[in-house]
Nucleic acid binder design. Sequence first.
DNA 1: CGTTTGACGCGGC
DNA 2: AGCCGCGCCAAAC
Length: 97
Amino acid sequence: MNPNVREQILTIISEIPPGRVTSYGRIAAMTDGATARMVARALRDLPSGHGLPWFRVVTASRKLADHGGADEQRNRLMDEGVAFDARGRIAQDRFWP
DNA sequence: CGTTTGACGCGGC
DNA sequence: AGCCGCGCCAAAC
């Protein structure tokens, strides 16, 4: 993958404010040509110990993506005040522009 | 070099 | 309002 675009992806994620979330697709649209799948791949490839708020990235349907750390992600978000409804979805106004 | 594989998204139904 | 199928594209095989 183009390391330049990857850098953009990581930078955007690092700027998501606490208590807000954004989607894979939204992030992809802010970069120069990345797709939602590339954003997902970039997150998957993150080394442990990075400081990025990876847990603030959710799907376009306002649910958590299906991956191993989904449980931890839910806890992290709730710690920041992000509420989930009974179906595990997040309020739309929680999205970061 | 052809296929398969996903931390996804969207349009149809 | 969900489910399904297809598009997407870098990587792994």
